[in-house]
Design a protein around this nucleic acid. Structure first.
Lengths: 350, 350
DNA sequence: TTGAAAGCGCTAACAG
DNA sequence: CTGTTAGCGCTTTCAA
């Protein structure tokens, strides 16, 4: 039996059950008559220990309500089960589904995602990355390929696996999982052209902050240009998007440019808002005006007039990103860029 | 100038810039010729230090790309900036808005919310609470008043502020912020009765898992009973809810009980799904059938026929919960139960 | 199968 | 204003 002399506690039996000093490994050791190390081994199921030791420990843990201190554990072992996940928003279902995919893979592996939200703010992203890294996570998953130089340096120096998600048009710090945002924009433009639309508007968002929306816009625009058409009119709103902004954008576009025959929305939120507006006031879609969004959200597909959109494989992006983290932890190498593709949804709004 | 003898590193100047050993406080101390403590003071802005010291440290931090190790900091000071937030789902906007409210208050205070999702699973909740507590958070915010006995014990023993949110019908472990779910159900029942509906159906979810939905149901049912009416027909679906489930529920209800004149949905997701179904197939709402939901989501209010619902003050619940945490940290006492109320939205679907 | 010693990187509590 | 000493609670390493 050993007791660490530095701890001047009374025997556990005499301890006040509602004491505010949390129970520690030492307490369990004292109570079981084992050493801290043996207790630690039992708790983590590593190394070897006797059945007797195990039972004693389990009993003591139950009796005392011991909750291990992972701060100490992670510090001592420089190994953490936390994985930082940094996304721009959780205001729409997109990133919550990605997170669901991630958690689904992490849970059985004993890893835990810690979420950070940037609200599309580059500076906040930098601070968030630094904060997250200061907790010495096991890995970091972050949306997008464009970051501040500080963020890039932090990520590169972190020494942990870094998986950038959603986008593959660019050069990842470490690994990337997603699809070509640019091509997602191109596909919609080609569709509009095929359907014969020529007076085309864009209802978008602050492209300086949402880099992926900007890439879709670029792909959309370039495709139109390739056949000599330009975007007739644009409406750009500040983030975050909403149903209301979508409705507002459509009204502006139709008011300022009455001969528009189709509108490309930066996302489904806006498109659905616009579509509902049309249903309310009796504007025929696509008769009077066609529309398309982005993300392929359930709500767009449930509309009386099914929304044309591009479905992003959000769950899959999450699971793949998480799997890459697991493989890296297992010491295996992974591909630098993983393209999970996307599906064009030819709905009834175009 | 002092150097901790236990560290046998070469002078910082000779350090490989891409070394995999992370930079530590010792490195900064060495490089600046100050002691660890002075560096620590500068970094945290506590105590006093000279302008010279500050500049040296700032320079060294920039040069080395030092990122503090908060595991060590939190362990040493037994003070953490992490606050655990445990919610049943992030699949709809409800809890993401609560989280937004929380973060909004935490950000300027230097606290950081760490999110955990239970998926309405009691056991997962217990494990999650234990995991969260093992990181020794500053406080814990959790949805609901009903938990496993293990969870309750953990929360009570944790020694940190615990704020239970969304519901106030019950006995909080520590503090509660929310509104009476029961009364939210009562209000809708009374509204249906006032409007003359008598053949009333319920489209709900697994009430054994969603305790708050169960309380609304109870309030709704009891109010009907008080005037001698019972629920004509119920449809109960497993979690999670969705637009599709809502549409399906309505079809079942109307098929099995053709003379229903109103349906109470467990939430807006389901109600909107049902409403969109009616729009698609041409069922008149509320002419043929009336409906009401719960949460007052934007999508329900944007429908061509505005959805009758009860708006939960989600942002406010988040901000108040966060403020309670801040007050507790400042050593101030707070009220045990805080009722933020709710708004009945008399829409066009009833 | 078990234990002792030596830290992990930081901060509290005291000196100066 | 600055430094020293002693841990925080755990795991690694080595020895028994």
């Amino acid at each position: 039996v050993s007791t660490t002399k530095s701890k001047q506690k009374l025997p556990a039996v005499a301890k006040n059950p509602v004491a505010d000093t949390p129970v520690t490994l030492d307490d369990i050791a004292l109570q079981t008559g084992l050493s801290k190390m043996t207790v630690s081994r039992v708790l983590r199921g590593t190394g070897s220990f006797s059945a007797v030791a195990r039972e004693k420990v389990e009993r003591a843990v139950r009796d005392t309500g011991y909750v291990p201190n992972r701060l100490a554990g992670a510090l001592a072992s420089s190994r953490s089960t936390l994985v930082a996940v940094i996304v721009p928003t959780i205001g729409n279902i997109v990133f919550t589904e990605v997170l669901a995919g991630i958690s689904q893979v992490f849970a059985p592996a004993g890893l835990q995602a810690v979420l950070g939200v940037t609200d599309y703010d580059i500076e906040r992203e930098t601070r968030l990355v630094e904060t997250m890294l200061s907790w010495r996570p096991n890995a970091l998953i972050i949306a997008g390929l464009e970051h501040s130089t500080t963020t890039q340096r932090l990520l590169r120096k972190s020494g942990i696996p870094v998986v950038q998600i959603m986008d593959i048009d660019g050069d990842p710090v470490d690994a990337a999982v997603g699809f070509s945002q640019r091509r997602a924009g191109e596909v919609v433009a080609r569709h509009f052209l095929d359907k014969g639309y020529r007076r085309i508007g864009y209802a978008g968002i602050d492209l300086a902050h949402d880099m992926r929306a900007a890439k879709r816009y670029r792909g959309f625009l370039d495709t139109l240009k390739s056949v000599g058409i330009s975007i007739a009119y644009e409406f750009v709103a500040p983030l975050p998007t909403s149903l209301e902004i979508g409705a507002l954008a459509l009204q502006r576009l139709m008011h300022d440019c009455p001969d528009l025959d189709a509108v490309y929305f930066a996302n489904d939120d806006m498109a659905v808002g616009a579509l509902l507006h049309c249903l309310r006031v009796g504007i025929s879609v696509p008769g009077r005006i066609a529309m398309a969004g982005f993300n392929g959200l359930g709500i767009g597909q449930a509309m009386p007039v099914q929304l044309t959109s591009v479905r992003s494989p959000r769950i899959e992006i999450g699971t793949r990103a998480a799997e890459i983290v697991l493989m890296r932890n297992a010491g295996r190498r992974t591909r630098r860029i993983e393209d999970v593709g996307f599906d064009f949804i030819a709905g009834q709004t175009s």
